[in-house]
């Protein structure tokens, strides 16, 4: 399955809903989306990963890049993920200490406000 991306506004946050596979081939599109949002002045991002089937270290690199971009504007980047196979990759790489990870978009929105 290819990558799907959609964005919407919730409160002060912009939710990026990601579906499908984030890998070395598709990650540049996610990167572009995050870069565009920040260029647009959206500094509080929530990346909803509940419909992601596959994530590798290339995808992690793009998420870290997004985090660095919003931080440069005192913003935030929160992840929504409850899938064990995806969470495992964040744990292996030590990134659970870097990203706030919520169980739901509502929880992430509440944490941002």
């Amino acid at each position: 399955m290819d990558l799907s991306l959609s964005t919407r506004t919730e409160g002060d946050s912009t939710v990026v809903e990601v579906g499908g596979e984030i890998d070395v081939y598709t990650a540049p599109r996610l990167r572009e989306q995050l870069v565009d949002l920040v260029a647009d002045g959206k500094y509080h991002l929530i990346v909803d990963m509940e419909r992601v089937d596959f994530l590798d270290s290339t995808g992690l690199g793009v998420l870290v890049g997004g985090l660095k971009r919003v931080r440069a504007h005192d913003g935030s980047l929160r992840l929504v993920c409850t899938q064990e196979r995806i969470l495992k990759i964040f744990r292996i790489t030590g990134l659970t200490k870097v990203f706030p990870i919520s169980d739901s978009v509502a929880e992430a929105v509440a944490a941002t406000d």
Binding site: R31, S57, T58, L60, G61, R69, T93
Partner: peptide
């Protein structure tokens, strides 16, 4: 910010 590709060692470490 221009370098937001995961470092090469990360793949092997995963």
């Amino acid at each position: 910010l221009d370098q937001d590709v995961a470092p090469p060692g990360v793949g092997l470490a995963v």
